[in-house]
């Protein structure tokens, strides 16, 4: 019924697509590796001086940028298919964003913007951009680190940390509420953000009610070390 010729041609086309996938797999595997090292480098933030951790974490940025350059090279050749292969780098990208946003907040107390994240990763927007959803999920990922961070900071004696984090998360939370989230992945992560905020509010409450907050000097996370 003439099916065979058509399927032969499909096979050729699928072989080509598989070749792209192999290239993507390899680029993403580098990205994955660098991200994992960056993550491991940042983790001691919970018990050691944050300065060192951030510095060490940032040292993996060139490797990460290189991996994105490879991804860019592959996708640039087929610009309309960015989302066809999106799943390959989606998870890693969300982790990268969360690590960058966490470091940025630790250093400046500010939220890393979408544009700044793209710049930090040296993405050329017209060839390979940072998907907005991935950026937002990355922010939620970061937020889920904060309750643990606050707990450990309080143990280290930084009693003003809960208030600062509570204000930051509260701002982030009301910013997210500006978005009309559908019933999707992002909405679930946003519910997580609410939970993180609640956690931090409870820690703030613990500190406040014991009078540990008043009269202490407020410092940036850095300074408390």
């Amino acid at each position: 019924c003439g099916a065979m010729e058509q399927f032969e041609s499909f096979r050729a086309e699928m072989d080509a697509s598989n070749a792209v996938r192999e290239q993507l797999r390899s680029a993403v595997s580098e990205l994955d590796n660098a991200t994992r090292l960056m993550n491991a480098a940042l983790l001691p933030i919970h018990h050691s001086s944050s300065g060192d951790s951030i510095k060490k974490a940032k040292s993996y940025l060139p490797e990460i940028r290189k991996a994105y350059m490879e991804l860019t090279a592959i996708i640039k050749a087929r610009p309309e298919e960015y989302y066809k292969y999106h799943d390959y780098w989606r998870n890693q990208t969300q982790v990268v964003v969360s690590l960058l946003a966490f470091s940025h907040w630790l250093e400046t107390g500010d939220l890393l913007s979408h544009a700044d994240a793209q710049e930090l990763l040296e993405l050329k927007k017209e060839d390979f951009f940072l998907d907005l959803d991935d950026y937002l999920v990355g922010l939620c990922n970061m937020s889920s680190e904060l309750p643990r961070y606050v707990v450990n900071q309080v143990v280290a004696g930084a009693y003003d940390c809960p208030e600062r984090v509570s204000l930051f998360l509260s701002d982030l939370y009301s910013a997210f509420r500006l978005l009309n989230l559908r019933n999707d992945h992002l909405r679930k992560r946003f519910d997580g953000l609410k939970y993180d905020l609640k956690k931090v509010e409870e820690i703030l409450y613990d500190v406040k009610i014991r009078g540990l907050l008043t009269g202490k000097e407020s410092k940036t996370p850095e300074e408390t070390k």
Binding site: V154, V155, R210, L212
Partner: peptide, 8 residues
């Protein structure tokens, strides 16, 4: 943490 805040 909870031992610490109570102790503080």
């Amino acid at each position: 943490y909870s031992m610490h805040v109570r102790g503080s």
